[in-house]
Write a protein that binds this DNA or RNA. Structure first.
Lengths: 228, 228
DNA sequence: CCATGAGTTAACCTAATGTTTACACAAAAT
DNA sequence: ATTTTGTGTAAACATTAGGTTAACTCATGG
């Protein structure tokens, strides 16, 4: 299942900024649209209904704050992500911006990289929330859902105990990657807990047994990895 | 259903910051808990399962980044909001922090007001997505009507006491999802009430008994979930 | 053929949960 | 007022399943 690219509308009256930001976000795989003032931003927002709107605060024909207020008042834009971009780095503006309903507030001069990180962070959060499936790991015919605490394999539910589940979840979180025994210990058991040597093996065994599918590979002298 | 105050865990090795931030967030109506180093942060996070964790980056016994990584690797903390707090204002740290899975990154010196705005913004976004409250729930042959305070099972009315009802409603509001004991406590009982260990069990038992249908599953060491 | 690391098994211990009873307290009924 | 009834909590005890260990076996390589 390919996620369709997220659409971003960016509004700023400085062409340079539009270009730099568009370029960088485009490179990240986003679909970028631009507007050069407040009214145009509103217009295009209504046309496109983008996933995220980046608004410069100081713009002709409606400031970013005004645009935000107008959009937020419409039900259609309740859930749309909004980021303010501004040269005014004083506290008051920032607070006001956030209280207007923005999700983030980034000061100019902008570092494209930082902006991208913040954009990514917002989308990451969003996907976690509306996609109940987003959290779960799906690999081939195996599904691991940490919210429901459930493992499904070929549409058969498998019940794992807490430690077993955590162990499997850890390994499956990075398929193919080898986890050292130490890593597993500190991730699943915690650093201050001391357990015997064979404990991990026993749990690995139980998971293998319950899954009935050979997907945990032993790398002797190193650790374990998950692979189908 | 009344909105329960959100729980926030803040970890910093400087007592001054802990105090200032605690005070200000408390004044906003949040329920604030503190930790003074990385390990303590992890420990308390596991106990409390707060809604938001604010992590200082530079802490003894595990940095904020490490804490974040450890928590994020665990299924139970996938959804928890995380904010980094740091004196290092360089780009690279910020980007790295956000990529570790944080939701926001705030530079020191902190303005309490700005921090609060950002915390509010995060919660505002979060609440938009899971607003399921108020509606009646219909699952198979079970109906739960929070308005009439009534549970119907196979067209038979079942009378539940207040706490029993709230407990069932909570679990049924997200079928399949596991609710931690802590979550149940803070949602049904509220976080300032201290009740004994066995109280939840007793109520669970009563609900199970009255429903007569086995639809509440216990996930040992984790919590309970509703499923038919 | 020993050394090392991993797999297997079953027994064991205990933390976590289930169950029951009793009691405080409030609301409703008398 | 007094009784009755129902709810919520605590305390005591029973039970179970999860986690750990230990002893043994197996596989591999030097």
């Amino acid at each position: 299942m390919e996620a369709k690219p997220k659409q971003i509308l960016i509004a700023d009256d400085e062409p340079d900024i539009l270009e730099i930001v568009s370029y960088n976000l485009g490179k990240e795989g986003y679909e970028v649209y631009t507007a050069k003032d407040g009214n145009e931003a509103i217009e295009r927002a209504k046309q496109l209904h983008p996933d995220l709107i980046i608004l410069d605060v100081m713009m002709p024909r409606k400031t970013g704050v005004e645009v935000c207020q107008i959009l937020r008042s419409q039900p259609m834009f309740q859930d749309t992500l909004i980021i303010f971009l501004t040269a005014m780095s004083d506290e008051a503006s920032q607070i006001k911006g956030l209280e207007t309903g923005a999700d983030d507030y980034v000061n100019k001069p902008i570092s494209p990289k930082v902006l991208i990180s913040r954009v990514n962070a917002l989308f990451r959060r969003l996907n976690k929330d509306d996609n109940n499936t987003g959290k779960s790991i799906v690999l081939g015919n195996i599904t691991i859902d940490p919210v429901k605490f459930l493992v499904t394999i070929n549409n058969q539910e498998v019940v794992l105990a807490k430690k077993e589940f955590e162990l499997l979840y850890l390994l499956a979180s990075r398929p193919g990657r080898v986890f050292l025994r130490n890593e597993i210990l500190s991730q699943v058991w915690g650093n201050d807990v001391i357990v015997g040597d064979r404990t991990i093996d026993v749990h690995i065994r139980k998971v293998r047994q319950k899954l009935g599918v050979d997907c945990i590979t032993t790398v002797k002298g190193v650790g374990y990895k998950f692979e189908l």
